[in-house]
């Protein structure tokens, strides 16, 4: 997480670090460009779908029809997204907003998102693996692998420390698998593969 302005008072530091509060100063022009684009992306996808769906505009008698709400909401989104984008661009051009303190390379900016992205990828293949080797085994592999990776096991010295970390990881894995298995398979009887 990048250092945020306004985190001077210790009382606020916690809150800001948690993303719980985003004071107005956090809305740097650069970020607002992204916000505008984020909102517009939803709107564009929505408009494309609405435009391709002729059944939305049929005759529904007294019912205003299924197109009313999508059009209203998409209009709000488009207008709001454009407004944020426009203001942000104006601010960028004028250079009025507080600039990020240091310029960083693209790679360095991407690095903090590497682990979350990897997690997502493993989770995306997890259901497929589940189908292949069964639920409990897939979960065990997934949990154990990640815990070991995150505990920095590979960098620990051989011997006691490494063994201890491995034992802790296996223990935690067993606990997680046991909890999930009892609650979902035994109690809920979810038809997991």
């Amino acid at each position: 997480m990048p250092p945020t302005p306004g985190a001077a008072e210790p009382e606020q530091a916690v809150a800001v670090a948690l993303d719980a509060a985003a004071p107005e100063e956090v809305n740097t022009p650069a970020r607002d460009v992204a916000v505008g684009l984020f909102i517009l992306a939803w709107a564009v996808v929505g408009w494309i779908s609405v435009a391709g769906n002729s059944r939305l505009f049929g005759d529904f008698g007294r019912d205003p029809g299924p197109a009313l709400m999508p059009v209203v909401v998409l209009a709000i989104l488009s207008a709001g997204g454009l407004a944020i984008l426009a203001t942000a661009i104006v601010r960028l051009v004028r250079g009025a907003g507080p600039q990020p303190a240091e310029r960083t390379t693209f790679g360095a900016r991407l690095r903090p998102h590497l682990v979350p992205a990897t997690l997502l990828v493993t989770l995306a293949v997890y259901p497929t693996v589940m189908h292949a080797i069964g639920y409990a085994a897939a979960t065990a592999v997934f949990v154990l692998g990640w815990i070991l990776a995150l505990s920095g096991w590979r960098y620990l010295p051989h011997g006691r420390a490494r063994l201890l970390a491995a034992v802790a990881a296996v223990g935690a894995t067993a606990a997680v698998v046991a909890i999930l298995y009892t609650s979902f398979v035994v109690v809920i009887r979810a038809p997991l593969p």
Binding site: F142, V143, I147, A168, A169, A172, A175, V176
Partner: peptide, 8 residues
């Protein structure tokens, strides 16, 4: 450990 458990 908690986070991975939650992810699962």
């Amino acid at each position: 450990m908690l986070m991975i458990g939650i992810a699962a």
